Amino acid sequence: MTYSEPVLLKYFNNRKVIEVSCGAAHTTAIVRGCGDGADDYVNTNFSSEYGHLYGWGDDCFNQIGRHTYCKTEPDDQCVPLRLKPLREARFLHTSSGFYHNVALGFFTQKPNQKVVFSWGGGLLGNGTDIYDSTLLPVRTLLEKDVRLVSAGGLGGTSKEYKQNTGDATDNVPYHKIVTPVSLQFFEGTEVTSVACGIWHTSVVVLCHGRQKLFVFGNEQYEGYMRPYCPFYSENFARGTHSIRTVKRIIPDEVFLPDQSPIKKISAGASFTVALLENGKLFGFGQNPRVCPAAAVPESDDQEIHINSADGFANERHVYRLSTGHEESRDPFVDVDCGTNHVVGVTERGHVFAWGHCFDKITFDVDKPIKIMDGVSLVKKAACGLDFNVLY
């Protein structure tokens, strides 16, 4: 069933929704006050809010975690299902890729040790390429102080990439990275925000007290079946699957025309949107459905010429995503990117959308539509392939 207007999900009435993330056709959410009584409270040192994890939607790649492989059962999970690891846990953050999820949480028996969980279809960081419906810890990250998680678009194996893209990958060598690797370029910096798109990643870091925005991977727009990812063959010697540090990924630094600090970034198919502390939105990338013509800016001050970190000249256009209303009076407080569209929420609860929503709903990038008008309870947005959740 398709809805062109927001519909209330009553399952979480009178409960506090902490965070929501959407994949291609599924959703995960962290919720407090789920009827477990005193079990909701855990004495922990973490300042972030925590809660129980729920999932609903398409389960064709085990991304909902129903622990069922019966082919006679439908793939859809129509009502929210509580997702439980093998031991009792609480969750701080969740991020859904197309067919897999990553969540940051902790076991209640060890409430001060953060744990990264992964499940669904794709390379889950556990040393294999086997799909798994069980929320398992990523063991390589158990001793790391992980603060943020982000799941990218397609998380499949090399076999699936070839099935999905046909002959496009026949002469394209690449490697499966089955366990987490360290990106040496960012060592010595503090990562404050990260966003994984389909085939690229954007990162905001603090370096010597200065905030910087970087992007790496492939930003070329050819739909969401592009056979490239940030970990491409030029970064690895053939056959080196045990590598722990990636030395040759050199991101491009992106310069925004506004010096206000970056509050959040979000990424879609070949584009990134940055939300600034002053409530303004800026976008860049190669997606013509979000970036106007993905080429020609309206004025000279919107065209940003930068030098990439690897020494090659790189021309990048940064666009202001505006609604025509005065952001100083009603600034944006949240933004999220779908595959080919963007949804922004203002301080007064107005919700705007730009881009293209999978041939079902089309938003003009120059003239965004208002999805919702001044609902004070709406503070955040989460975008999937062709659907959105407001909370």
Results as ranks from 00 to 15, higher is better:
Ser158Glu: 12
Lys159Gly: 15
Lys159Ser: 14
Lys159Gln: 14
Lys162Leu: 14
Gly166Thr: 06
Gly166Cys: 02
Asp167Tyr: 09
Ala168Cys: 09
Ala168Lys: 13
Thr169Asp: 10
Asp170Ile: 11
Asp170Val: 09
Asn171Leu: 14
Pro173Glu: 08
Tyr174Ala: 11
Tyr174Asp: 14
Tyr174Lys: 15
Lys176Asn: 13
Ile177Val: 15
Val178Thr: 12
Thr179Lys: 14
Pro180His: 00
Pro180Val: 07
Leu183Ser: 03
Gln184Ser: 15
Gly188Leu: 08
Thr189Asp: 09
Val191Tyr: 00
Thr192Ala: 08
Thr192Tyr: 01
Ser193Asn: 11
Ser193Lys: 05
Ser193Glu: 09
Val194Arg: 06
Cys196Gly: 03
Gly197Thr: 08
Thr201Ala: 06
Ser202Gln: 03
Val205Met: 00
Cys207Ala: 13
Cys207Arg: 15
His208Arg: 12
His208Met: 09
His208Lys: 13
Arg210Tyr: 08
Lys212Trp: 02
Val215Asn: 06
Gly217Ser: 07
Asn218Gly: 07
Glu219Pro: 06
Glu219Asp: 07
Glu219Val: 04
Gln220Asp: 12
Gln220Met: 12
Tyr221Phe: 11
Glu222His: 11
Glu222Gly: 09
Tyr224Gln: 11
Arg226Leu: 07
Pro227Lys: 07
Tyr228Asp: 00
Cys229Met: 12
Pro230Ala: 01
Phe231Pro: 03
Phe231Met: 13
Ser233Arg: 09
Gly239Thr: 01
Thr240Cys: 14
Thr240Ile: 15
His241Glu: 14
His241Arg: 11
Ile243Lys: 10
Ile243Tyr: 10
Arg244Val: 10
Ile249His: 02
Ile250Gln: 05
Pro251Asp: 00
Pro251Thr: 04
Asp252Gln: 10
Asp252Gly: 04
Asp252Trp: 08
Phe255Ala: 14
Phe255Thr: 15
Pro257Asn: 09
Asp258Gly: 04
Asp258Ala: 08
Ser260Phe: 00
Ser260Tyr: 02
Pro261Leu: 08
Pro261Thr: 07
Pro261Trp: 09
Ile265Gln: 05
Ser266Cys: 10
Ser266His: 03
Ala267Asn: 05
Ala267Cys: 05
Gly268Arg: 00
Gly268His: 05
Ala269Lys: 01
Ser270Thr: 06
Thr272Asn: 08
Val273Lys: 01
Ala274His: 00
Ala274Val: 04
Leu276Val: 08
Glu277Thr: 09
Asn278Gln: 07
Lys280Met: 10
Leu281Trp: 05
Leu281Asn: 00
Phe282Cys: 06
Gly283Gln: 05
Gly283Pro: 02
Gly283Ala: 15
Phe284Asn: 00
Gln286Asp: 10
Gln286Ser: 11
Pro288Asp: 00
Cys291Phe: 04
Cys291Gln: 12
Cys291Asn: 14
Pro292Gly: 03
Ala293Tyr: 12
Ala294His: 01
